[in-house]
Design a protein around this nucleic acid. Sequence first.
DNA 1: GATCTTATTGATAATGATTCTCGCTTTTAC
DNA 2: GTAAAAGCGAGAATCATTATCAATAAGATC
Lengths: 131, 131
Amino acid sequence: MPTSNPTTRRKTEQRAAIVDALRKNDRAMTAQELHDLLDSVGLATVYRNLGRLAEDGEIDAIRRPNGETAYRACTAGHHHHLICRNCGLVVELHDCSLDDWGRKIADKHGFVGVEHQAELLGTCEKCANRS
Amino acid sequence: MPTSNPTTRRKTEQRAAIVDALRKNDRAMTAQELHDLLDSVGLATVYRNLGRLAEDGEIDAIRRPNGETAYRACTAGHHHHLICRNCGLVVELHDCSLDDWGRKIADKHGFVGVEHQAELLGTCEKCANRS
DNA sequence: GATCTTATTGATAATGATTCTCGCTTTTAC
DNA sequence: GTAAAAGCGAGAATCATTATCAATAAGATC
Ligand SMILES: [Mn+2]
Ligand SMILES: [Mn+2]
Ligand SMILES: [Zn+2]
Ligand SMILES: [Zn+2]
């Protein structure tokens, strides 16, 4: 078995820089983008911290259509995303009415432990106005 | 610019074999899985045809949590998927009540051209019964 | 403050899915 | 039949992500 997974998290300026960069941005950012921005932080470190922060629920992972994973410093609690497919702007949607929908369908088909995943893709006002 | 993209599609036994394999399976399959199954069809050919078939709307692409893309011969029309996270069984959900939800939220935030994407992940009856 | 333990870092190699190359084969129109 | 072009496939190339591992630094203990 590999080295046991530490439960304690130390404070490092690298992680602080990553969280800070995410907090200052409305868009979701990939590890590569963050590494370009914070050229003092190694690429592997960016990946590691993004993974852990997402694991700890401190940031959200967003899968882009091309397969890359981007991350965003969202507020707490279950929510969904409305994403501009042009500029990447992300709006958090905290009013989720999909639990009923999922539960009903799950029951009908005999599924248990169902969770839903949903996103809205569109063009934001700013991007639409300069087309 | 690269070679212009052909609009005409020729009939080949490779593509037929791929579609046939998908039609015979309730689960979604990756290119690798299909290549293992149909060892007479080259891997690049599997990828090429899956991409085109999805482009043409003849099959559905399903993104797995780990990032791989799997494909399934679904019936026509807009629908969502209820997927067993253990055995991969896929149930098509053709009763979609999410358009209203999406449109309403889009309007509220000034987004246009919004489309939704949603999936349900759970454990199917069969898998739940033998835990 | 010195010292020790070990989480963390980062340059680099490795992985793995997907895409590209390019010469050969097959489909299909004439 | 012939020929133009789509399709094929073995292998090389991409590219995002992960694994290595020696060096560093955070936090605990004295
Ligand atoms: Mn929800
Ligand atoms: Mn729908
Ligand atoms: Zn925008
Ligand atoms: Zn199942």
